[in-house]
């Protein structure tokens, strides 16, 4: 049983883990781009445009990620666009994490005292120099730990795309247990793989948190 697990299960599941990590990374990167744009927009756009971003963030954060994934998978084809299951998962998770990253960015910038902005304006900085040289360097340090937590959520969220038929770690495990009936060790191995990836990422967040603990106002 152990040899089957090692010789057949491990490669099969490692393949799945690669898909999981690949999807998590792609979704997180797109999510971070969305998050920065929306997060800055939430803070600085006038209310008559900003409310669209607010609605986006609140709606996505109010929905279960599984609903987003199913919706993307079933709704995108209705509009006539063909997207593979993998990419409808990436789109849904990018959309999902974008809202969470937006809140991280908004909170990070918002936590920098107003006096910093006032001082920057007093010495004549405009919006972009203010962002580039004053607010972002301080805020990014604040954002890193919660952003890493959000990334872990994305990687955990990729497990849900197994339900739309993407062979990532969970579905690879199910396929292995389905053909060999080795159930308990297989799920144990899957849990260990998820734990190894996510725990390393979380620890990285902890390191950054300690590294930037000196930033206090």
């Amino acid at each position: 049983m152990l040899t089957t697990l090692l010789h057949q299960g491990l490669p099969q599941m490692a393949q799945g883990l690669l898909v999981t990590v690949g999807m998590g990374l792609q979704a997180s990167i797109v999510g971070i781009v969305i998050g920065v744009l929306v997060g800055v927009g939430l803070l600085y756009l006038p209310a008559y445009v900003g409310w669209i971003f607010r609605v986006y963030v609140d709606v996505v954060r109010g929905l279960p990620p599984l609903v987003l994934i199913f919706s993307a998978y079933y709704l995108i084809p209705v509009s006539g666009i063909n997207v593979s299951a993998f990419y409808s998962g990436v789109i849904a998770l990018a959309f999902f994490s974008g809202a969470h990253f937006a809140e991280v960015v908004r909170g990070g910038i918002d936590s920098i005292p107003q006096t910093q902005t006032q001082a920057a304006k007093a010495i004549g900085l405009r919006f972009w120099p203010l962002m580039r040289w004053i607010l972002l360097p301080q805020a990014v340090r604040r954002m890193v730990p919660p952003a890493i937590n959000a990334t872990v959520e994305v990687i955990k969220g990729t497990s849900l795309v197994s339900l739309i038929g993407v062979v990532e770690l969970v579905l690879a495990t199910q396929q292995f247990t389905g053909s060999t009936f080795i159930v308990i060790p297989a799920y144990g191995l899957a849990a260990i793989m998820y734990f190894a990836v996510n725990f390393s990422i979380s620890r990285l967040g902890g390191v950054f948190e300690k590294r930037y603990a000196y930033l206090q106002y």
Partner: peptide
């Protein structure tokens, strides 16, 4: 906190 709920459910 580091393992997806779906894995626990399965």
């Amino acid at each position: 906190r580091n393992v997806p709920l779906l894995v626990l459910v399965f």
